[in-house]
Design a protein around this nucleic acid. Structure first.
Lengths: 332, 332
DNA sequence: CTCCAATTTGGAATCGATTCCAAAAGTAGA
DNA sequence: TCTACTTTTGGAATCGATTCCAAATTGGAG
């Protein structure tokens, strides 16, 4: 038994395909009796309108796609929850796919927007160069969240990474930090901004960080440990470390503790993101909280405008407020 | 400038739509000169075949969808990586969407399979009742991973949760555990199996666990802490706790430590999943490693068979081997 | 140069749902 | 009962890519 079509439903219900379609789309111009007959036939045949046929005719899919490097970042999954809720309340289905930082896979997924498989795209961590993002944003419905490419045409929602890094570094200094270290990630756009904020805070306090106390790599636990081992070879030791993510900070704390030093007494540590790992860590991490859910919601709202309202749209970045969360990994 | 179609390309290249389509689909029956003209026209017009039109005609989308309760489980994101790699090498695009355990949202996403938005479905944690999964598997391309509904028609890949729980509980007993406690989750199918394994291991060792030493709830850090506080009110205290996930185990260890007790000397703790949290914990967690990546790959292979080979398919569950990883949270 | 086979091409039919237009049916007022 | 509406309906045209069939072209062999 092949799939039922509108034709089949029409025949079974004894009406025309037009009427069936009108029932499906809740057009008011259908008599009560026809509606009942059609509804019965639909149930009897277990009919579902074929998405591709409908999408072709309507020229839209009511689906959006989000792209992220990987899925298990708590910030991304929380932001995507915001996207999903906002999308659902506008009748859109939201899907997500990981790119693994692979430009080829990213391209393949971006093609889903180009070929009309989805109506809009949300990019969490573009791998492509800034110019490509810019060009895409010029003609297609794209919005960025968290990691944002420098682009004229594009729109992005994030916190002010530079300011947040500035704030938390300033906190480290105010609580006695002098030999400032940072574990960063220059490969990420937000990582570069956080480094800027770190340096700026140091500069304003009249501190010029020792070059050997800046190390960088991927933001995972083991990298955090490895890079901290590097920092612990410095002499004199750093007395405060700003880590670009909580996961890295957890690794940092662990390595310091294993070396027989105390956090924060000997070395203070700060994280970033306020993920659950900030609370799992001992001592719990001072960190920056991002309003990820709201960032997601806002991103979808803007995407919706781009998908439905023709013409020029909002450009540039919008910053949502972050929050410095002080816990036990820094002094007070 | 509206979107270009095959017609436009054909006109620009001075050939027929048939020829354009043949070039697009790499049919060998095209002369070199036509191919060049068409390729040039495609580039000039920046043409992309419209997905919905192609899908309609071909009656398939080359897309699959995975559903999970939430995305930030390390097991799920690792398994989905396996799905994605296997899918990519067969020319499929794989997407994922969180259901948040909401039956309505799950239904909406499952409808994407029913209405042909995707060719196949991978379910990580079905919210719907077992019968519904069964009925779906009977007629549609569906495969389950990790959390597996009890169903005749469906196929699922997972570890043997009961055996794994049996193994790790046995380890707890062999290292001196007598007052056995468990933090479980009866809401999850795998949670129920793990409980069975736990009880079976206890029974075989001649231990009948104190009923007050079984507590259950969601598998997150704070729940882990809360439930452990409950356990610590028991008298006498448990001397070994089997936790249904590493995250919960991390919360458990934390609460025990905060209470001034030592892990594993006073109370041994075991986790499940071997996620990164098992290593972040102090002491590091004894746990069960799941071959999540391979589970994902295998799931896709089976899904591919269902999508492409007509007829009856493999049924029931396939178990992949798990591994007991012994670390410092249990004695030795 | 002719004939037959192989290669290449054009174009119509097709996939299934939607929508527009014209026609039919229904309703009300006179 | 007839007219002037409004409501409801049927059915053809449409969306854009693919594919099949028949026609046209090419290439060799004789």
């Amino acid at each position: 038994m092949a799939r039922a079509t509108v034709q089949d439903v029409a025949k079974t219900a004894g009406v025309s395909v037009g009427t069936v379609s009108r029932v499906l789309n809740k057009s008011p111009a259908v008599s009560e009796s026809s509606k009942e007959k059609v509804t019965a036939a639909i149930r009897q045949l277990n009919y579902r309108p074929l998405a591709s046929a409908r999408d072709l005719r309507r020229d839209r899919t009511m689906r959006i796609l989000a792209l992220a490097k990987n899925l298990n970042s708590p910030i991304i999954s929380e932001a995507f929850r915001g996207v999903g809720d906002a999308a659902a309340s506008s009748g859109y289905v939201s899907l997500i796919a990981p790119t693994a930082g692979d430009p080829e896979r990213e391209q393949q997924l971006v093609d889903m927007l180009r070929n009309g498989s989805v109506d809009g795209l949300i990019m969490f961590s573009p791998t492509m160069p800034d110019e490509d993002v810019d060009e895409m944003a010029e003609q297609l419905s794209v919005v960025q969240v968290c990691e944002i490419a420098d682009s004229e045409a594009a729109f992005g929602v994030s916190i002010d990474d530079r300011q947040a890094a500035f704030d938390i570094t300033t906190h480290l200094i105010e609580t006695g930090g002098r030999r400032l270290a940072m574990i960063g990630n220059r490969a990420a756009r937000s990582g570069r901004l956080r480094e800027e904020g770190f340096r700026q805070a140091a500069a304003e306090a009249g501190i010029s960080p020792d070059q050997t106390l800046f190390v960088e790599g991927e933001f995972d636990f083991h990298t955090g440990r490895r890079l901290t081992r590097k920092l612990l070879k410095a002499a004199p030791l750093p007395d405060a470390v700003f880590c670009g993510s909580d996961t890295v900070a957890a690794g940092c704390v662990r390595e310091i503790t294993d070396a027989g030093l105390r956090v924060p007494d000997d070395i203070a540590v700060a994280g970033f993101d306020d993920s659950v790992q900030a609370e799992m860590c001992v001592p719990e991490l001072t960190t920056i909280r991002q309003p990820a859910y709201d960032m997601g919601r806002l991103a979808f709202e803007e995407l919706l405008a781009r998908m439905t309202v023709p013409g020029v749209h909002r450009r540039g970045r919008t910053f949502l407020p972050h929050e410095l969360v002080i816990r036990d990994s820094t002094k007070n």
